[in-house]
Design a protein around this nucleic acid. Sequence first.
DNA 1: TGCTTGACAAGAACTATTCTAATGTGATAT
DNA 2: ATATCACATTAGAATAGTTCTTGTCAAGCA
Lengths: 132, 132
Amino acid sequence: MEKYKKIGIKLTPQRLAILDFLDGNKDHPSAEEIYREVSKRFPTMSFATVYNTLEALAERGNILELTIDPHKKRFDPNTELHHHLICTKCKRIEDVHTHFELAVPGMHRKGFEVTGNHVAFYGICPACSHRT
Amino acid sequence: MEKYKKIGIKLTPQRLAILDFLDGNKDHPSAEEIYREVSKRFPTMSFATVYNTLEALAERGNILELTIDPHKKRFDPNTELHHHLICTKCKRIEDVHTHFELAVPGMHRKGFEVTGNHVAFYGICPACSHRT
DNA sequence: TGCTTGACAAGAACTATTCTAATGTGATAT
DNA sequence: ATATCACATTAGAATAGTTCTTGTCAAGCA
């Protein structure tokens, strides 16, 4: 795929498969989910390859590493500025494409140079609120 | 200490030491930091006790489990609604006691019942921006 | 007194991630 | 087209953080 060329990493079949799986993916998959899926096509795939690729992509700003799930890292191929709505029961994550104008008041900034922000909304998704 | 009685868990010397360490602590300590500190007073202290106590406290809403640091859990004894400013280099976390009026627009809510939110601000703290 | 419940310590087990060493391979220059 | 080399890949070991298990004990209660 031509569109992946500009990322600036060496393209390999494994990496293309990972990129294809991520492209347009709205499920914020974990390394394990990526591995499970991609290793269907590449049964010899190693976990290290998944992590290496994800790290390389994150470094270049092509994906975001989410620190939302206490148990594992999750990755988001959508690098536009956006926020998340998380079901505290099933851990499903939905995107919230709204821009919030947020600034840290000087008194709390403590000399920090603020570079970004992320809003996590918590709630219960319809599916979970139904079953009990 | 009387003030701990109302938490509703059985108070033991180990738990009192953990509670004392957390009380007013603004450093958002990890389990490991709590263990290191409390085991000075109770050298036989086990990690399991730390985790059990933290879990019990979190369940009862007496502390918050922060999912901000990708490498470890961090705990916040301040359960008032507040937000955080995180140094992406040294992982220091400062509190931001500002109330933001945030609502998820209906189109993104997808039927979620939203129960709360948390804003993470990212930046570089003064100490880190100095040393290169 | 005996029962029940919950807390504890110690360490094993587990999970997610990172590292290592050996081998393989895509991209470029030849 | 081929050789080369830096970078990718693999398998498995290593690590870090967290959770689980087992046996023990103390406190509260019938």
